[in-house]
Design a protein around this nucleic acid. Structure first.
Lengths: 126, 126
DNA sequence: ATTATATTTAGGAATTGACCTAAGTATTTC
DNA sequence: GAAATACTTAGGTCAATTCCTAAATATAAT
């Protein structure tokens, strides 16, 4: 019953438990989505208001909103036929924290050994 | 010779000029890649050293390193047959800045109007 | 010169992501 | 209640991502 019958070994991702952070960074990796977030920083807005600046078809744009909401970066509520989106700051801080932690770590390091192996001659590689 | 002959209108992405930030966030959206970065925060390491903890095939793992390097988050140099990777702090700060800017913006906002439309009843939507 | 080591390249398959058009559904408005 | 309005759902294409195996290349060691 064990796998490994033939060709493929593993198909999906190496880390099945994609953390929340994954989703946040993925959501942020798209310019449209980042623009939307910037827009929402100013104030909440409806789907059509948010979609207006883009020439993208509505359903496509909706996908982006779904990604954002699933990542926890925004929340939405529907009142009547209008759905309004709003920023949800929590997740953002999560990403920021990861980055900050990392940065502080390696900044100290790099400061310390400044160059290490790497600076020994700048001999390119590519 | 112009497109738009039939069905499809636009194929690629809406923003052809994917900024540097795009790549950085994308690179960060994968747990393997984040782990590698964490690892490199401690000190530079070779491909095989970095790959060791993962059961992934080497070529697959190499892909991740390439993504990281293309995003500018790490740099590498090959000496002899060994390629060594190292953190490159610049890009990271870029991402951190974007996040920080955003956060400060909306934190102020949310503080101000605290609830707005959204809190009017918590009527779910899903 | 061989053999071992450390990557690299080539080539593929499955999934996911980002778009699209067309056709709903639910709420107002008139 | 008929027609707008504001999303939603369904279904499809194409490209990029994420893994894989097998084979190649470059260096180092013997």
């Amino acid at each position: 019953m064990t796998p490994r019958t033939g060709g493929q070994r593993q198909r999906g991702r190496q880390f099945p438990a994609a953390t929340v952070v994954d989703g946040v960074f993925r959501a942020l990796s798209d310019p449209t989505r980042r623009h939307v977030l910037e827009r929402l920083s100013a104030k909440p807005a409806s789907v059509s208001e948010l979609a207006a600046p883009y020439q993208m078809a509505l359903p496509s744009f909706l996908e982006h909103l779904k990604v954002l909401e699933k990542s926890g970066l925004v929340r939405s509520r529907k009142v009547g036929r209008v759905r309004t989106y709003q920023i949800a700051p929590g997740r953002l801080r999560l990403a920021e924290d990861w980055l900050g932690r990392q940065r502080s770590l390696w900044e100290r390091r790099l400061d310390q050994l400044d160059s290490y192996l790497m600076t020994m001659k700048e001999q390119e590689s590519k």
